[in-house]
């Protein structure tokens, strides 16, 4: 009866933004990205990808509460980059990595079923 709808955990409420950006007021080149309706799946891959970036001084994500379906991604970069640039770069790299993985898998599946 008094239960929130199950879809609330993956449907972004109307009027809300999927990603919002909050610049740090005290530290240069630091910001927090608030991503609505995402969890460890996205949070962890973005964090690990950011760690590969030499310009990123700090990158972490957290899921502040299991029933508040949002994650915070905090990034600090060196002065030649910016958190926004690093964030976009991480997503682009992950996207390209998945393209490669898909291509590899499709090839492997067809080769495997032919030899089988």
């Amino acid at each position: 009866m008094n239960v929130p709808d199950r879809y609330e955990r993956f449907v972004v409420p109307e009027g809300a933004k999927k990603v919002s950006y909050e610049r740090d007021t005290k530290i240069m080149n630091a910001a927090t990205f608030i991503v609505e309706r995402e969890d460890h799946t996205i949070g962890n891959i973005i964090r690990m990808q950011l760690h590969r970036d030499d310009n990123v001084l700090f990158a972490a994500y957290q899921l502040p509460h299991p029933l508040k379906y949002r994650i915070l991604v905090r990034i600090q970069t060196a002065s030649q980059s910016s958190p926004m640039q690093a964030y976009n770069q991480a997503i682009n790299d992950l996207d390209k990595e998945l393209d490669v993985l898909k291509y590899e898998l499709e090839g492997a599946f067809s080769r495997f079923s032919r030899s089988y």
């Binding site: 990603v19 610049r23 799946t41 997503i91 898909k102 599946f109």
Partner: peptide, 28 residues
Amino acid sequence: SQLILNAIDILKQKLDAVRLSDDTVEAD
């Protein structure tokens, strides 16, 4: 096999959804 390929597509869609929108960039 299809499950694995679908998972990659879904993950790509999810990544696409968390890209910054233009108005956030402008505001910044």
